[in-house]
Each structure stands twice: as C-alpha cells, then as structure tokens.
Design a protein around this nucleic acid. Sequence first.
DNA 1: GCCCTAATGGAACTGGAGGCCCGTTTGAAC
DNA 2: GTTCAAACGGGCCTCCAGTTCCATTAGGGC
Lengths: 207, 207
Amino acid sequence: MELEARLNATQPGSVRPGGRTAKVRAAVLEATRDALADSGFHALNLDRIAAAAGVGKTTVYRRWGSAVGLVTDLLRDMAEQSLPASDTGSLEGDLRANARVVLDTLTDPRMGPVFRAVIAAAACDEECADALHGFYATRLSEWAPVAERGLVRGELPAGTDPLEVVRAVSAPLYYRFAVSREPLTPDTAERAASAALAAAGAGAFVV
Amino acid sequence: MELEARLNATQPGSVRPGGRTAKVRAAVLEATRDALADSGFHALNLDRIAAAAGVGKTTVYRRWGSAVGLVTDLLRDMAEQSLPASDTGSLEGDLRANARVVLDTLTDPRMGPVFRAVIAAAACDEECADALHGFYATRLSEWAPVAERGLVRGELPAGTDPLEVVRAVSAPLYYRFAVSREPLTPDTAERAASAALAAAGAGAFVV
DNA sequence: GCCCTAATGGAACTGGAGGCCCGTTTGAAC
DNA sequence: GTTCAAACGGGCCTCCAGTTCCATTAGGGC
C-alpha cells in the first residue's frame, strides 16, 4: 500500500469497529499468538494465519499487511491489558515480585515466543519499535510507584529516579532472554531484584 | 537443503577454504554489513547481496541459504575478532571502560544495525541463537578478568561471580537498545557501570 | 426496517525469492 | 605442471507470498 494512501485513507477496521470487525481482529491475533507459540516469528505465514482464524486472507493482508504489522498490532493489544504492580509493603518485596512477574512472562511457553517475536519485529520496523517503546513506557510507569513508595518510606536515597530502579530489575532478565540467550531461572530473578535494590540503595540511580 | 544432507555432507567452503572461497565469504559478509547498515535486517535480499558482492546468487543461496544464515555467519565472523578488555588498575575504571565500549558499539551507525539484526535473527532461528550465545559467552569471559582482578584487590566480596558483574554492566544498555528502545547516552553507560559496581560491592553477585 | 458503504472473502493473477542444472573456474595434492 | 574434485556462476524454472478485482455481507445512522 502506498504511504500517501495509508496516511489519507482511514485504516481498515477503524471506521466501523463493531461486531464482525472486532471478531476478525480477535481471531487473527489469537491465531497469531498460537502460530508464534509453536513455530516462532520466522515461520509466520499470513495465509496460514487467515486459515487458522477462519478469515479471508485478503482481509489479513489488507488490515495488517505483513508479519511485522501483525506482531505490531498484537503488541498494541498487549499494551491495552494493564498489569497492576504489587504492593507488599517493602521495596524489596515489590522488586522481587516484579522480577518474578517478568521471569514468569518470559519463560511462559505462550508468552515467551510472543515477546521474542515482538523484539525481533521491532528490530525490523520503526513503527513496531515505537509500539514496543510505548509498551515498556507504560509497563515501567505502572511499576514506578513501587519505587516512589520506597522513596517515601526512606528505603531509597532522595533524588532516586523511580523508573531507573524498575528498569534495573528487568534489564538482566531481558538481557539473558534476548541477547546472551542464557537460561532464565528463579535464581536469576532473585539476583536481579537484589542487585537493583543494592544499586538503588547505594545511590546509583540518583539523577 | 535437506537436514540429513547438511549433517552428512561437508559444508560448502569448509573443505577448500583457500583463496577464492575466502574472498567470496569476505565480500558477501562485507556486503551484508553494508546492507544492514543502510536498510536493516528486514530488507536483506540475497540476490542484491550477491550482486553487491560481485558474486553469483547461486553461491550465496548454496552457502548461506537465507538471510538468517547470512547473519549467523556474520556473527561467527564477529566472534573471531576478539575485543581485549581494559586494565585501568581499578574495578571502577574497568567497568566504566566496558560500559563505554558497549555503548560505542551499539550506537555506532555501522555496528548498531548489525547487532539489531543479530538479535532479531537469533529470535527466529535456534542455530543463530546458539551462535549469539557463544558470541556473548566469549565476550563475557574476555571481560571477566576485570572482575577477577577486582576480587584479588579486595574491591569485591569473596565469592562474587565475575561473569555476573560483567553481565550487569551490559544488561541495562542492551535492554534500552533492543527492548524498551530508549535512547543510549554516555550518561546511561556511566550509570550502568556504577550500578553494577554498587550491586557487586554489596554482595549481590555472591554465588 | 431501510439504505449506504465499510469491511470481508473468494478467485484469479503476478513478480520475484529461492532452487536446479550443468558447464567453468580454481584450490590443493602429488 | 598435471590432475581432480570443490566451489563458483549463468540461465532457466517453479511456486507461493502478496495483490487486485469484484461480488457479498453486515455495521450503523436515519
């Protein structure tokens, strides 16, 4: 599709998002999740997705255009589902809980491949990269209150950047997951949480 | 190519790796680097690579098979070039130097896209994932002496895992680079180094 | 309930990625 | 320098991802 046409025309599915259109999107994204879980991003085939979703392949090509477009929309769908942060009463407890949530997500046989695909797609496409950035901006801000409460309770030095504390918990897990490809164990999550806590406590994230 | 054939037959280029074969590989990998730098992984086209390298497209398909195969070999090529660790005399200095090296690599207009491609390809293919794992296993072990010297100097608690210290420096940078897609600045590198130092100093990486 | 058009879906088409054949070139062993 | 097979490369072909066309279905405003 021409760039100009995309910008001027309304996106398919945006003008009349009721009944059928919404069902088509749900079925297609569901089929995409299934396909990613059992064959991964490289094997994503829009014809098969259409067949699995019980939808015309023309529709899939028209609305999503490519595997990257499909994964980008899947990411937007994920971004809509908020993941509430925990509140255990201590910074340490909350950071451990966060590390555990990230670990469980990345090692989940269904969600793990989705996250791999999303990271790969973002490496291939700027629009997807923006969506991924937005997704994590939301997730990080949802967990930032954990650090803010820690600040109020005096568990962190004044001036500590709450977002940076939350990032520090996720980073080692994602590094193993997507970069060094090392196994993710509960132990890894524990260490990520305690390292973040120690670094933050020492003032490493004071701006 | 059939799986069985790949396993039994010798890989093209492995029996007679002299003159022409080596030149072909160098030219193709060079063309791949160029293509990644200006159009990214998704635009990688084996026909164009062959043309740019001045090589028959049959050769490229036969030896590398696909874009992922090409990137996997590029990764193996990168793994052969060792990157010596610094030795500034202090753990802090060495960790800062390491953070700086990683930052410079990821923000380099030529190397950045290559690393993105490698991460994306590894998310699509197990063989590439293994190669990526091997690459970072090597890199991490090259920098581990930095932490080992710190241990000897008493800058780290006894029992600290040297690899874990080095991982802690890279993780926040790669997290921003590939996952949350946030900008990488010199400041980010500084903070990664000092956070790793603080966490390690507090005994967060004692096994 | 009626109309209008957004959205879907079937079917046929097409371009190019990727594979195959086979003659040519060139390392490497002697 | 001769030999032999590994590796290369040009040309041809196949197949399917992605597109186009148009008829059909079904939201949503009235």
